[in-house]
Design a protein around this nucleic acid. Structure first.
Length: 592
RNA sequence: CGGAGCGUAGCUCAGCCUGGCUAGAGCACUUGGUUUGGGACCAAGACGUCGCAGGUUCAAAUCCUGUCGCUCCGACCA
């Protein structure tokens, strides 16, 4: 039977997608390499296979789902007036030098050499390329606005690829770049993209929240990230149920209470604190200094210079905010030996009190929550000693006050006062208003109405397409497998005949329904495997086809087939109603 | 790059600590048979440079050294 069925397949109509003719290598057991549910399911459902760390092969089924996500992205970008083009992945390093990112992005740049030993870079993104193009092609305000996009493979030398497609060395991104002749125009382009993104993710069946974001090394003016709430995400999002405020914690601020000051004219007093090298240790007897009355002193090195960062004892530093304050991302925490050499004490006994500092003219950045505080305690820059009665305005030469702290869940929203919540999330999209950084660096200039030369005002907009696909699975699964939204499912319908003999009424009906669904444009796969029913049911649920049509002799005898939505209950429908019932489900899901 | 763990059949893993003949199990695969509405059963079979290199030893999957790869935690990002 087995061999004849293989022979039979070769002679059957190739226009029917039969399970035995494609390859869907499902796994009953989870490969050890996968940690999070979406990665496990991508592998178990036979959608992807790993070539090596951070590099994956899309199997036929996985590719179908990927193409559906891409198509939704393409349709919505086109609807928003963006123009699709395709740029080279291989790029000359010169344009990266011009933008300054050859240095600032060097950690993620893959570099290769050609036979003449000339260096090239593999594009992690395409601001430099598109801006070079626009510099040559767009010379007048009359040619703007323009928004160019592509869907293309990007390369990033990730420090640590992980979670399958979530963070890979090579991934597919939709990147778009808008060019406007005015700031107001750029705002409008930005909002168009923001709205397009909301539609894209909604169509993909994803629940996302748009949050205010830090602009990082992109060097933009302001930006939003589209986040999929998920415990396995790599970002923390702070949001407010009261007014809808939402921001990446890198960016978020809250309306925290000022630190109460304790008026006192007392002068700094050194006291011994042997062994107490943490904020927590100082809160305990015999010292009993509450964390909110301590000043935490962090030592950073920026441009090989020492920088001190002061926070209240119970606050955490937000490095993204520090980057904003420093105007650079080129900084790092000091090494223990380096700190000892500079400060004369080890971490745990550090302080910024002017009289105890060895160095002169060091920048001291202090969090605003410390402003005007008195009666504080901090390290004495001598191991085993701290200072009390610190009045920050009098005793510490703060160079700059800034919001440097990480917000915590429960703090009052800065806009409405309700408590903020913090949630892990996966970033699937990011919109930036860039301004003129790249257009100036790469000379994308145009003549305005008055004949003056101006740099184009840019925006850039990314969607991690492969990551979005995985985020859908991360958000949409159950104990049996994936639960695809119809919009991105590899096939909408899986027909499961329980008798696969070609001449059987069951199989003949299966092929008839297949033909009808296909003629209606509904993607269908026919599970013609000669396997036991339970095996086929389990497999189709693992892969997660949104609708299964079960056809067996028992129900057929009653003139019925079984309709089993992946996320719903099984119902019996008359044979003649099966196709219209499926069509109704599909229409309802796609809103068509 | 720092910290932790793991490399034995296509997959999941045992064996390693305490060295010993021909390296095991389950799943998957091949053949035959029995089955057939929720991941069947019987029988036979195929599949391994035990990650790689070096060392110790009469003898190494097992001990030692080095190396490569993978996974997880931290800093970077779609």
């Amino acid at each position: 039977m087995q061999s004849t069925s293989a022979a039979r397949n070769r002679t059957l109509c190739p226009c029917i997608m039969r399970w035995t003719q494609t390859i869907i290598p499902t796994l009953k057991e989870t490969p050890a390499e996968a940690e999070i549910v979406s990665h496990k399911l991508l592998l178990r459902a036979g959608l992807i296979r790993k070539l090596t760390g951070g590099l994956y092969i899309f199997m036929p089924l996985g590719l179908r789902a990927l193409r559906k996500v891409e198509q939704i992205v393409r349709e919505e970008m086109n609807r928003a007036g963006a123009l699709e083009l395709l740029m080279p992945a291989l790029q000359p390093p010169e344009i990266w030098e011009k933008s300054g990112r050859y240095e600032t992005a060097r950690d993620v740049l893959f570099k290769v050499r050609d036979r003449a030993k000339k260096e090239w870079v593999l594009g992690p993104t395409h601001e430099e390329v598109i801006t070079t193009l626009v510099a040559g092609e767009i010379n007048s305000y009359r040619q703007m606005p323009k928004n160019f996009y592509q869907i293309q493979t990007k390369f990033r030398d990730e420090i640590r690829p992980r979670f399958g497609l979530m963070r890979a060395k090579e991934f597919i991104m939709k990147d778009a770049y808008s060019f406007d002749s005015s700031d107001a125009g750029a705002q409008e382009s930005y909002h168009k993209m923001y709205n397009a993104y909301a539609r894209i993710f909604q169509r993909c069946g994803l629940k996302t929240i748009a949050v205010e974001a830090d602009t990082g090394v992109m060097g933009g003016k302001f930006s939003h990230e589209f986040m999929v709430p998920a415990e396995t995400g790599e970002n923390d999002v702070a949001y407010c149920d009261g007014c809808g405020y939402a921001a990446n914690v890198e960016k978020a601020s809250s309306n925290v209470t000022k630190t109460a000051s304790e008026p006192s004219a007392a002068l700094p007093e050194k006291f011994p604190t042997p062994g107490a090298v943490t904020i927590d240790a100082l809160t305990k007897a015999p010292h009993s200094v509450p964390a909110e009355r301590q000043i935490k002193t962090l030592v950073y090195v920026a441009d090989s210079k020492i920088v001190l960062v002061l926070l209240r004892g119970d606050d955490q530093l937000n490095e993204a905010k520090l980057a904003g304050t420093l105007g650079s991302t080129m900084f790092r925490p000091g090494e223990p030996e380096e700190i000892f050499t500079a400060m004369g004490a080890h971490p745990g006994s550090l302080g910024a009190v002017a009289a105890t500092l060895k160095g002169d003219g060091w920048a001291i950045y202090a969090d605003e929550r410390l402003k005007d505080t008195t009666g504080m305690t901090t390290g004495a820059n001598e191991d085993g000693f701290h200072l009390r009665n610190i009045e920050i305005g009098r005793d510490i030469k703060v160079s700059k006050w800034a919001d440097l702290r990480l917000v915590q869940a429960g703090e009052p929203c800065a806009k409405c006062g309700q408590p903020l919540k913090v949630q892990r999330a996966i970033e699937v999209g990011h919109v930036f208003k860039l301004g003129t950084k790249y257009s100036e660096a790469l000379h994308a200039m145009f003549l305005d109405e008055t004949g003056r030369q101006q740099p184009a005002v840019m925006g850039c907009y990314g969607i991690g397409v492969t990551r979005t696909l995985q985020a859908v699975i991360e958000q949409s699964n159950d104990a049996n497998g994936i639960v695809w939204p119809i919009s991105v499912a590899p096939y909408t319908v899986c027909i499961t005949p329980l008798n696969v003999a070609p001449e059987s009424p069951v199989m003949q009906l299966a092929e008839k329904i297949y033909a009808e669904l296909t003629s209606l444009g509904i993607d269908t796969i026919l599970d013609d495997r000669n396997e036991r029913p339970g095996f086929k049911f389990k497999d189709s649920e693992l892969v997660g086809f949104p609708i299964r049509i079960g056809i067996g002799e028992k129900s057929l005898a009653k003139g019925e087939v079984e309709l089993k939505p992946r996320a719903g209950a099984l119902t019996a429908v008359k044979v003649e109603d099966a196709v219209s019932a499926v069509q109704a489900l599909v229409r309802a899901a796609l809103g068509a």
